[in-house]
Simulated scan of single mutants.
Amino acid sequence: MATTLTGQQIADAGLAGWVHLSDGLRTRVPTGGFAAGLALVDAIGAAAEQADHHPDIDLRWGHVDVRLWSHDADGVTQRDVELAGTVSRLAGEAGLVPDGSGLQSVELALDAPDAGAVLPFWEAFLGYERRAGAPDEVRDPAGAHPPVWFQASGSDEPRQRWHLDVWVDPGQVRGRIDAAVAAGGRVVDDSQAPSFWVLADADGNRSCLCTWQDRQADG
């Protein structure tokens, strides 16, 4: 099994235009049209077959999104870093520039005093499945929709039912916080930064901005 890389190891690889989020190593390549995007997808597909390592690709009219994740290691590995370099090279040869700065991944979290009592319901209701080594979450088998995880909370403490975990590139955090505060929100807790910041809207509903930084285990 391949070894999962830490967030810092991924950052040290210096992949321009790529971001490391909760669901993998990702980029977006603006193409300006469908034909250019399709040609890039064909080139990436051929390279992926040669490497025997296959990315998730989303082709749209004006861009191509690429996500890299080693399923056997349940994380980002050196294979992903190498294939990211190949994708960047192929994009460059086509006169295109990868830019992941606008990408984010979203997770849904349910505060629950007894996660074990409600997790099976959401697994069945959503048609999700459990992932080995992650007993507190359920995931879409196709990877098309956000995962749901269950955060332990005291039965008597004030809590909200749902909150969002929004993963962004570290370079995007300050602008996102400033915009949220300007829109009437506030930073509730930054004691865990740069791992995550807790923000709230004017009614006190809380959500977290998350990055890969300062985490004991990535994934």
Score class of each variant (00 low, 15 high):
3 T>R: 14
3 T>D: 09
4 T>Y: 05
4 T>G: 09
6 T>D: 05
10 I>G: 00
12 D>A: 12
14 G>D: 04
16 A>D: 15
19 V>N: 03
19 V>Q: 06
25 L>C: 04
25 L>H: 03
26 R>M: 14
26 R>G: 00
29 V>P: 01
29 V>C: 02
31 T>N: 03
32 G>P: 09
34 F>W: 15
35 A>F: 10
36 A>T: 14
36 A>P: 03
37 G>Q: 01
37 G>F: 06
39 A>F: 02
40 L>W: 03
43 A>Y: 04
44 I>M: 02
44 I>Q: 00
48 A>E: 04
50 Q>T: 15
52 D>W: 04
52 D>I: 03
55 P>V: 04
56 D>C: 10
57 I>G: 01
60 R>C: 08
61 W>V: 11
62 G>W: 13
63 H>T: 05
63 H>V: 02
63 H>F: 11
66 V>E: 03
67 R>N: 12
68 L>P: 01
70 S>E: 13
73 A>W: 01
75 G>T: 05
76 V>Y: 01
79 R>L: 10
81 V>K: 00
81 V>A: 00
82 E>I: 00
83 L>D: 02
84 A>Q: 05
87 V>R: 00
97 V>Q: 15
104 Q>T: 14
105 S>I: 02
109 A>I: 05
110 L>G: 02
112 A>K: 07
112 A>E: 12
113 P>F: 08
114 D>Y: 10
115 A>C: 06
116 G>H: 07
118 V>M: 12
118 V>D: 14
118 V>K: 10
119 L>W: 07
120 P>R: 09
120 P>M: 08
121 F>D: 11
127 G>Y: 10
131 R>Y: 13
132 A>M: 13
132 A>F: 11
132 A>V: 13
132 A>C: 06
133 G>C: 08
133 G>V: 05
137 E>L: 15
138 V>A: 11
139 R>Q: 11
140 D>I: 05
140 D>K: 09
141 P>T: 06
143 G>H: 03
145 H>C: 10
146 P>H: 08
147 P>W: 13
149 W>K: 04
151 Q>C: 15
151 Q>G: 12
153 S>V: 15
154 G>N: 09
154 G>V: 03
155 S>R: 15
155 S>C: 06
156 D>V: 14
157 E>G: 03
159 R>N: 10
161 R>Q: 15
163 H>M: 01
163 H>E: 04
165 D>I: 10
165 D>L: 11
166 V>N: 06
167 W>D: 09
167 W>A: 08
169 D>V: 04
170 P>F: 10
172 Q>G: 06
172 Q>E: 15
172 Q>Y: 07
173 V>N: 07
177 I>Y: 03
178 D>H: 10
182 A>H: 14
183 A>C: 08
186 R>Q: 12
187 V>Q: 06
187 V>E: 07
190 D>K: 09
194 P>V: 07
195 S>H: 13
197 W>G: 02
197 W>P: 02
199 L>C: 10
200 A>E: 11
201 D>L: 05
205 N>M: 10
209 L>N: 02
210 C>D: 03
212 W>C: 02
213 Q>S: 07
213 Q>L: 13
216 Q>C: 11
219 G>A: 09
